[in-house]
Design a protein around this nucleic acid. Sequence first.
DNA 1: GAAGAATTACTCGGATACTGCGTGTCCGAGTGTAACGGG
DNA 2: CCCGTTACACTCGGACACGCAGTATCCGAGTAATTCTTC
Lengths: 161, 161
Amino acid sequence: MRTSKGVEWAVHTLLNLAWLGDGEPVSTAQLAAAHDLSVSYLNKQLQQLVKGGLLESVPGARGGFRLARPLEAMSMLDVVLAIEGDQPLFRCAEIRRCGTVGERVPTGGFRRPCAVNSAMGRAEEAWRKALAEENLADVKADAEAHAPALASQVRRGLGRD
Amino acid sequence: MRTSKGVEWAVHTLLNLAWLGDGEPVSTAQLAAAHDLSVSYLNKQLQQLVKGGLLESVPGARGGFRLARPLEAMSMLDVVLAIEGDQPLFRCAEIRRCGTVGERVPTGGFRRPCAVNSAMGRAEEAWRKALAEENLADVKADAEAHAPALASQVRRGLGRD
DNA sequence: GAAGAATTACTCGGATACTGCGTGTCCGAGTGTAACGGG
DNA sequence: CCCGTTACACTCGGACACGCAGTATCCGAGTAATTCTTC
């Protein structure tokens, strides 16, 4: 079990767009070249970000992608949900109701929640809460703290200066 | 991204062994029949639990598996680690150091940690902490709270009474 | 009748196929840009 | 010189292959119980 590598690609791409500063759209080819990524596959991930409302796509010549809102209004959870979808980490198959010790639904009673599923759900909720508290602007600031030249490096790498 | 279904199988099997009470080993066939699971595949998962120190295996006729320690000393994290392994949810591929904006390692400098990886790591740590706090004995008690007849139901289903 | 050895039946354990999702790639639809011609 | 039209080049967007991890299965090694033989 591991997150798709598209998550890492998406976050770094969002950071690069933020460092670029201007609202000009950037093509997938440039964004991919920035980190030696597969152009087509990155494009697929960016489409997911558009569906998730994190990016805007500009069609036509001189088109590309740009941030839909400032990084301050984006969390890691937003990225993960956009790329991975909102499916839970733990999917309960309700095996408790099968086999020789299967818990039969009492007549007229409703299905009580599975204790295993509840416990896993609580842990997953902690994960999502922590992801929601990880602001993308903070991540960007953290990266700059150790490498102040990053912004200009991105502008140079994407041919802006 | 989702956890292996082996996690659900393992937890329910551990609960069944606890409800059974006696320290007698139970064969994989009986444990699988309890919830209509694949015998061979469940056996593979139980072997992982043995390697993780949660179960003991008894070979030979009238053998099987039994709990290695009481449920009070087991957490959901122990199960997840035994089944899934201790690999992190987010694996940093260090793409930040590649491509046109790749962060080159300064001469003589050490590699500072990736800000993206750090943020993901913090969230994952929250998940693991929550999993570690979910005691298996509590899960068992939670299940019993809504279905007091479960213990006897398991003993009957596994042919103990 | 009791003890010991051979046999048997049952168990775990790891090596071997299959499937679904993540990964990667390709080509077509759509649009903004630029060139070109006419007024 | 300015405007409208046409062609073009570039972009996104979704449809199409590939590979690997999770899933499922099978057969062999090993052990405890059982049976049989012998004292």
